[in-house]
Nucleic acid binder design. Structure first.
Lengths: 129, 129
DNA sequence: TTCGTTGCAAACATTTTGCAGTTTC
DNA sequence: GAAACTGCAAAATGTTTGCAACGAA
């Protein structure tokens, strides 16, 4: 019900925005993407709700690119590519994440809760510039 | 010769500090670690030289933990564990990085220059708190 | 009226930069 | 003297927070 009341429209718009994109946006990018639909939305609201969603496990932080945090509504473990030319964060669906959690636990005693495999380099577009 | 002249003593101390630790320190941690040997070193100098070393490929940024960048003088691809309890960044020497660069290139067209495999969770100490 | 959500502006923390002073050659 | 490095303070940047106003129940 929450999603349909006016009170939660902005909160819901933020989550929907993230769920409907694969660009792994920053808070400011989300704010900009929502500007058309919600011209009066505040950046503070975006930050507040992103923090809330993250705490609830609805989204995750997948990278920090040039000091800016980038988010993803896909919380399944998957692989990312960060382009150092255009700062794009891409999904690499073709590559699968090795499941090494148990091996880590056994060899180091650390309890694994999450795993990120991230490549950096130049995306196709930026290679031809 | 550079390392022995007074002019480069601080710069060298910063690099040596990083090379002699496996704690993956932040700029502020480096600053603090050097305080005993160089009581007058400025945080700005640490930041400036870290940026320089990174650009020269002498060090790499391995993670951003709670918004703070962490550095490593080991630029070989290796695996890290970030503890969400104490913010420690640990090396997982036992686990090897899968070499998927070519597969990434072939399936996505992205040119891979670097790869990071990072686990998060609770380290041994923090599990028993 | 009580609770949760928001916008705004101020505060905050980390990082970067301008500039003057010092060292090296 | 020219070039490079540094400390200090100020600025810039991304993010968080306090507070008053608003909306829902």
């Amino acid at each position: 019900m929450e999603a349909h009341t006016k009170q939660f429209r902005k909160r819901n718009a933020i989550l929907t925005c993230l769920q409907g994109t694969d660009t792994h946006p920053s808070a400011e990018m989300v704010h900009e993407m929502l500007h058309h639909e919600h011209p009066d939305i505040s950046l503070a609201t975006v930050y507040r709700n992103l923090a809330l969603f993250k705490q609830q496990g609805l989204i995750q932080s997948v990278a920090t690119v040039r000091g800016i945090e980038r988010f993803d509504a896909n919380t399944e473990p998957h692989v990312h590519f960060i382009c150092t030319g255009c700062d794009a964060v891409l999904d690499l669906h073709q590559i699968s994440v090795p499941h090494l959690g148990e091996e880590v636990q056994q060899t180091s005693g650390c309890r694994v809760e999450n795993c990120q495999l991230t490549f950096t380099g130049l995306c196709g577009k930026c290679q031809s510039i």
